Simulated assay, not measured.
Amino acid sequence: MEPFRNLKSKIVPLDIANVDTDQIIPKQFLKLLGKTGYGEYLFFNWRYDEHGIPTKNFVLNLPEYKGRQILLTRENFGIGSSREHAVWALKDYGFKIIIGSSFADIFYNNCFKNGVLVIKLDKNIIEDFFSSKTNDDFYIDLRQQQIRINSSIYSFEIDSTIKESLESGADEISKTLQFESYIKKYEEEKAIKLQPNSIL
């Protein structure tokens, strides 16, 4: 995955609590190969009516919110099934950061595994963002663990290991591959020991 750098963007305010993964990406769209192509189906049941026509008032369909890379959510975002496709859909659509007061644990971890920064803030701060900050630029500084909006600064917590992975762009697979030579040596030695004529 790509290393995470500082990001500046306005927010997309999704003013709905308890959003489950089946709403983020409905089950009928889980058959694609790979991790891309899911963005067009993000929040499909809310973005389109029964005839496939975009609904006028859903936030992702409003032109003023196009191209924004930060999703602002209410509490308990990402509950329900553990499908990683939910994160793939959000990332494929263009979201690099999700801000909210609480998230389902599995969804939360899946985000970081896919290079999406999740920021937990106090519920009162989230309320303030919804009510007064929807058209302000958010400057996200991962190294300083800060959100800067105009003259206001909001600090956030993040596990140091997760932070390092985001900054370096190293996912679990790439971290494992750092030890490829040791793994290869171990497998070769194991194969020799398993040969019939080998001396134990």
Rank of each mutant, 00 (worst) to 15 (best):
Pro3His: 10
Pro3Glu: 09
Arg5Met: 11
Leu7Gln: 02
Ser9Asp: 09
Ser9Trp: 04
Ile11Tyr: 05
Pro13Val: 05
Asp15Met: 05
Asp15Ser: 10
Ala17Ile: 04
Asn18His: 08
Val19Ser: 06
Asp20His: 05
Asp20Gly: 01
Asp22Phe: 07
Gln23Arg: 14
Gln23Met: 11
Lys27Glu: 09
Thr36His: 11
Gly37Ile: 05
Gly39Asn: 03
Tyr41Asp: 03
Tyr41His: 12
Tyr41Val: 02
Phe43Lys: 00
Phe43Asn: 02
Phe43Met: 12
Phe44Gln: 11
Asn45His: 10
Asp49Pro: 03
Glu50Leu: 03
Glu50Gly: 01
His51Asp: 15
Ile53Ser: 09
Lys56Cys: 01
Asn57Ile: 04
Phe58Ile: 08
Val59Leu: 06
Asn61Cys: 07
Glu64Met: 12
Tyr65Glu: 01
Lys66Ile: 06
Gly67Ser: 04
Gln69Leu: 02
Ile70Pro: 00
Leu71His: 07
Arg74Val: 09
Asn76Phe: 02
Phe77Tyr: 14
Phe77Glu: 07
Gly78Ser: 08
Gly78Val: 08
Gly80Pro: 06
Ser81Asp: 07
Ser81Asn: 12
Ser82Val: 07
Ser82Tyr: 09
His85Trp: 02
Ala86Leu: 02
Trp88His: 08
Leu90Met: 14
Lys96Arg: 13
Ile97Asp: 01
Ile98Ala: 10
Gly100Arg: 02
Gly100Val: 08
Ser101Asn: 11
Ser102Trp: 00
Ile106Asn: 01
Ile106Gln: 00
Asn110Met: 01
Phe112Lys: 00
Phe112Arg: 00
Lys113Ile: 01
Val116Pro: 03
Val118Lys: 05
Val118His: 01
Ile119Ser: 12
Lys120Asp: 03
Lys120Ile: 06
Leu121Phe: 05
Asp122Ala: 11
Ile125Tyr: 01
Ile125Leu: 11
Ile126Thr: 11
Glu127Ser: 15
Glu127Arg: 13
Asp128Pro: 00
Asp128Ser: 13
Asp128Leu: 12
Phe129Met: 13
Phe130Ser: 07
Phe130Met: 02
Ser131Arg: 10
Ser132Leu: 06
Thr134His: 01
Asn135Gly: 10
Asp137Pro: 00
Phe138Arg: 03
Tyr139Ala: 13
Tyr139Phe: 13
Leu142Ala: 04
Arg143Gln: 15
Gln145Arg: 12
Gln146Tyr: 05
Ile147Gly: 05
Ser152Phe: 08
Tyr154Arg: 02
Glu157Lys: 13
Glu157Asp: 15
Glu157Arg: 11
Ile158Lys: 06
Ser160Tyr: 05
Glu164Ala: 15
Ser168Gly: 04
Ala170Leu: 14
Ile173Gly: 03
Ile173Trp: 07
Ile173Met: 13
Lys175Asn: 15
Lys175Cys: 12
Lys175Gly: 15
Leu177Tyr: 10
Gln178Met: 13
Ser181Gln: 14
Ser181Asn: 14
Lys184Tyr: 11
Lys185Phe: 11
Lys185His: 11
Glu187Phe: 10
Glu187Asp: 13
Glu188Trp: 05
Glu188Lys: 14
Lys190Met: 13
Lys190Glu: 15
Ala191Glu: 12
Ala191Trp: 06
Ile192Glu: 15
Lys193Val: 08
Leu194Asp: 12
Pro196Ser: 04
Asn197Glu: 14
Asn197Asp: 15
Ser198Lys: 05
Ser198Asn: 13
Ser198Tyr: 15
Ile199Pro: 00
